[in-house]
Computed example of a mutant assay.
Amino acid sequence: MIRLYIIRAVLIAAVASTCYWLGGECSLGLAILIWAGVTTGACALGAALLRTSRVGEITWRNRAAGYLIPWGWRLSRGRLWVAAVFSWVTWMAVGGAAFAMRPGAMTEPSTTGVRAALFAAWVIDAAALVYVLGTIWQATPGSRVRSLWKLVTVITAVLGASVGLYVTGRPTEALMFGGGPPLAVGGGMGLFVLTVLIFGRNTRWN
């Protein structure tokens, strides 16, 4: 599982770097058009590779498709076209965020560190949102998912507010708003793990 997360993080970083470079080589409109064409072809190719693969047999087709359409499988319920479309939307969102991170693309220039941290915060927020939606989608009938829908609302509001702050020329505030919750949650989990490592697993917590 950790290996999967690392691979996806590397994929996102590679895509973001490519789009960031592309945004500097041509106009924003042309860059978006080129990226849309590339992602459409990549997702269509990934779907075709899986469609022609034999069931139960792992070949280079499956592995290649896993890099091209890695997103949306928890929401697809086995439907290939849903995963392909969701992957296309995800790749377009990653590319769009990378284009927006270029100095002066959508707002006043800010430091590279702020833009990189903000991009990472958006990725984490979006990943959390998709994970919660996938959990709701896979829940059995009658399950209590009301609290999860509240969490979806909160994450969506945080992400939307952060994007809005960035677009209106306040990247630092956008980073604080978008990166604050992931930092707090991650810090709390890290503190808990550190406490367990220091005091041992046999510590009673009740």
Score class of each variant (00 low, 15 high):
Met176Trp: 12
Ala44Asn: 00
Met101Asn: 03
Val123Trp: 07
Ala13Ser: 14
Gly37Trp: 01
Val114Pro: 06
Arg102Tyr: 02
Leu118Cys: 03
Ala120Asp: 07
Thr107Pro: 03
Gly142Met: 04
Arg204Ala: 08
Ala83Tyr: 02
Leu118Ala: 00
Ala116Pro: 07
Ala157Leu: 13
Phe177Gly: 00
Leu75Thr: 03
Leu151Asp: 04
Thr195Met: 09
Trp35Arg: 06
Leu183Ile: 11
Val185His: 08
Met92Ala: 09
Trp60Ile: 08
Arg54Glu: 12
Tyr67Met: 11
Thr107Cys: 11
Gly188Cys: 08
Arg3Phe: 14
Thr52Asn: 06
Thr39Ser: 12
Met1Pro: 14
Gly188Val: 10
Ile34Val: 15
Gly104Glu: 03
Leu148Tyr: 05
Met189Phe: 15
Ala139Ile: 13
Phe99Tyr: 09
Gly113Asp: 05
Met92Thr: 01
Ile12Met: 08
Ser143Met: 09
Arg3Ile: 15
Ala116Thr: 15
Leu183Cys: 07
Ala120Leu: 14
Gly164Thr: 02
Pro103Thr: 01
Ala93Leu: 13
Ala84Trp: 00
Ala65Met: 07
Pro181Asn: 10
Thr107Trp: 09
Thr135Tyr: 04
Leu148Ala: 11
Gly37His: 00
Val145Phe: 00
Gly24Asp: 03
Ala84Gln: 13
Ala157Glu: 12
Asn62Ser: 07
Ser110Val: 10
Leu50Pro: 00
Ser110Asn: 08
Leu197Ile: 10
Val82Thr: 11
Met176Cys: 10
Cys43Lys: 01
Cys43Val: 12
Ile6Gly: 12
Gly160Arg: 08
Thr195Asn: 11
Ala157Asn: 11
Ala16Tyr: 02
Asp125Pro: 03
Leu11Trp: 00
Trp149Asn: 12
Ser143Gln: 10
Glu25Lys: 11
Arg201His: 09
Leu159Asp: 04
Ser53Thr: 05
Thr135Leu: 01
Val38Met: 13
Gly190Pro: 03
Ala83Ile: 08
Arg74Pro: 03
Gly29Met: 06
Ala121Lys: 01
Ile7Val: 15
Pro171Glu: 00
Tyr166Ala: 08
Ile2Tyr: 14
Arg201Ala: 10
Val38Asp: 05
Glu108Cys: 05
Pro70Ser: 13
Ile69Val: 10
Ser17Met: 09
Ala97Trp: 03
Ile2Glu: 14
Val114Ala: 13
Leu80Ile: 02
Gly72Trp: 04
Cys26His: 11
Leu133Ser: 11
Val132Lys: 01
Gly178Thr: 06
Leu183Gln: 04
Arg77Thr: 09
Thr52Cys: 07
Phe86Val: 11
Gly134Ile: 05
Thr172Phe: 15
Val85Tyr: 06
Gly95Cys: 03
Leu165Met: 14
Leu45Arg: 01
Leu50Trp: 02
Ile12Cys: 06
Thr111Lys: 11
Ile2Cys: 08
Arg51Asp: 10
Ala139Lys: 15
Asn206Lys: 14
Trp137Glu: 06
Thr111Ile: 01
Ala14Pro: 06
Gly104Ile: 14
Asn206Ser: 10
Phe99Pro: 06
Arg146His: 13
Gly188Arg: 12
Glu108Val: 15
Ser87Leu: 05
Ser87Gly: 13
